[in-house]
């Protein structure tokens, strides 16, 4: 692995709409980030989290196997800043205890998400 890669921040993507996830992945990579995933289910993301911790994360609120609650809890426990990229207003019902994190409602240009990630990372320095 090239040395400069190790300094690239690692962003976890949890998103079950493949087109959105891959587009986001491309944008983040173009902007100089490394991407973990994209994961399409909470289960696969949790499994990955058992061995690694990302620098930040973009979580779709509602996945096919349920809301992103467990991932959000695990990231909070590890003090990893993350944002929730939500498709629908009612997603907030299932994630009421994450009102304090950044919520971005779909759709926004990927550049907005990249910018939001950058801010999350600045915030934790």
């Amino acid at each position: 692995m090239p040395i400069q890669n190790t300094s690239k921040p690692l962003v976890l993507i949890l998103e079950d709409e493949a087109l959105i996830a891959l587009n986001l992945q491309d944008e983040l990579q173009d902007a100089g980030y490394k991407v973990a995933g994209p994961f399409t289910t909470c289960a696969t993301a949790l499994e990955w989290l058992q061995t690694t911790t990302p620098d930040t994360a973009i979580l779709d609120a509602a996945l096919k196997d349920g809301p992103c609650r467990e991932i959000a809890l695990e990231l909070s426990r590890r003090e990893v800043p993350f944002l929730i990229y939500s498709g629908h207003h009612e997603d907030r019902q299932f994630l009421a205890d994450f009102d304090h994190v950044t919520w971005i409602e779909k759709p926004v240009p990927p550049s907005v998400l990249v910018q939001a990630c950058r801010q999350l990372l600045v915030g934790c320095d």
Partner: peptide, 11 residues
């Protein structure tokens, strides 16, 4: 669909 369309624009 809007989100898909947006991803389509990018891709």
């Amino acid at each position: 669909t809007l989100t898909t369309v947006q991803a389509l624009v990018g891709a």
